[in-house]
C-alpha cells in the first residue's frame, strides 16, 4: 500500500518533470540533433513505465514503524531543521551544543550525560575543525580563530 502511494507521488512528480521537458525547456538555437529537452523526455517516459509497473505490483505493505518511533523521527527532523536554521546566526559552537544536548537526550542519555557530551562536542569539534584542520565554520559571537 505505502509502496503504491509512494509510486503515485513519484508518478505525479515525474509527470510535472515531463511536462516541463516537453513544453518549457527549449534552446533558442542549436546545432545538435538532441537538444537540452530530449534527455529529460527519455527519462520521463522510462520512469512513467517503471512507476506504472511498480504500482501494478507493489511489494511493501506498510512502513512497519510504530507510533512512538514516528514521534521520535518527527522530533529529530525538527531538531535538524532548527540546527540548520541556527547554524549561521548562533555559530557552530552554540548551535552544536544545543542540538547535540537535545538529540542525545532524545536518544535516552541522562540530562547530565547529554549536556556534557553536547558541550564537549561543540567546543572540541570547533577547535579541531577550525584550528587543526583549517575548515571554515560559522564562528557566531566568538572571534574567529
Amino acid at each position: 500500500m505505502v509502496d503504491r502511494v509512494f509510486a503515485g507521488i513519484l508518478l505525479l512528480v515525474t509527470i510535472c518533470y515531463g511536462y516541463i521537458a516537453f513544453t518549457i525547456i527549449k534552446a533558442p538555437f542549436q546545432y545538435d540533433p538532441l537538444g537540452p529537452e530530449s534527455w529529460p523526455q527519455i527519462l520521463c517516459i522510462l520512469s512513467v513505465i517503471s512507476l506504472l509497473i511498480l504500482m501494478w505490483k507493489p511489494d511493501v505493505e506498510s512502513f512497519d514503524t510504530k507510533r512512538p518511533t514516528w514521534i521520535k523521527l518527527a522530533i529529530v527532523t525538527v531538531l535538524l531543521f532548527a540546527y540548520a536554521e541556527l547554524y549561521e546566526p548562533l555559530g557552530f559552537i552554540i548551535a552544536t551544543v544545543i542540538f547535540t544536548t537535545f538529540m542525545s537526550r532524545l536518544l535516552q542519555a541522562t540530562w547530565l550525560q547529554a549536556a556534557v557530551f553536547g558541550v564537549t562536542l561543540g567546543v572540541l569539534g570547533y577547535l579541531i575543525c577550525t584550528g587543526l584542520l583549517g575548515l571554515n565554520l560559522p564562528s557566531g559571537p566568538f572571534p574567529k580563530l
Partner: peptide, 29 residues
Amino acid sequence: HYLTPIIAVLAFIGVYSIVSNPFDLYLII
C-alpha cells in the same frame, strides 16, 4: 546517543565547510 548526534554534526561540518551555504543544510535534511 553519542554516535547519532556525531553523524549529524559531521555531516553539517562537511557540507558547510565546502559551500558555506545554509540552503544546502536544508537540502541534506
